[in-house]
Nucleic acid binder design. Sequence first.
DNA 1: CTTACATCCTGATTGC
DNA 2: TGCAATCAGGATGTAA
Length: 277
Amino acid sequence: MPELPEVESLRRILARTAVGRTIERVRIAEPRLRRKVAHGFAAGVEGRRILRLGRRAKYLIIELSDGAAMLVHLGMSGSLTHRGIDFDAAEFAARHDHLEFALDDRTRLVYNDPRRFGLIRLVPRGELPSTPELAGLGPEPLSAAFNAEYLARIARGRRAAIKNLIMDQRVVAGIGNIYASEILFRAGVRPTRRAARVARKELERIVAASAPILRAAISSRGTTFRSYRDAEGQPGRFAPRLMAYGREGKPCRVCGSLIRNVVVGQRASFFCPRCQR
DNA sequence: CTTACATCCTGATTGC
DNA sequence: TGCAATCAGGATGTAA
């Protein structure tokens, strides 16, 4: 389940291995992702060089030499792996390898996504800031713009659960179900609390907890809970450090109480009944 | 504006 | 053992 740390890990790997390469050919085996890959996509990408790799929220941004940018979202089950096999020899594409980008060093980038919740789109030069996917996003949780004052302003009058609030990409961009649970655990706040009822001090703890958790997860190259793999096909190493997510019925690593799982906003939400109030 | 919920999709897991 | 039901949850669209 790729969230900010997984996408950031992907960006860092590809920044080392793919920047400077020219995309010689694009093969589209299955264009039906969350939205259908546009007709002119391959023609708009082929022949361009990869200039730079960026990230916004859970979106990977592949900047191309003509000023356009590829926007990649991995959805729930997507992966973008850098494979060292010749494009021509890639006849045995794995199941759910939907797009392949042949690079000029005879390696290829392969987009695989069993559930096809992902998105790949070419954004014309200069249109990135106004593109619908990015335009409404809230601040990056690793930026100074995500602070307690900001969060307090958003939370005011909101009946939604605090966990829904920090998973709302318009509020803060890049946090998904796993890290929302981890952040609230560290902050000592129950995921079910109504946002407006969360005290200023607690909001401060939520903000303060966010960056260290996300940074630690990036250092571990993300969390592999089930199937996530990074650009080199490796699982993330953060899972053993999860305090709450996926630990239902197991003892809290801090106090020993049993971690509970409740549904908040149609999503599993794990918390410690003693550490989180 | 805010909130709630269905929708897309496949694979892993659970239940009988 | 096999098969069907359930769960997983990214973002989005619609309804209330």
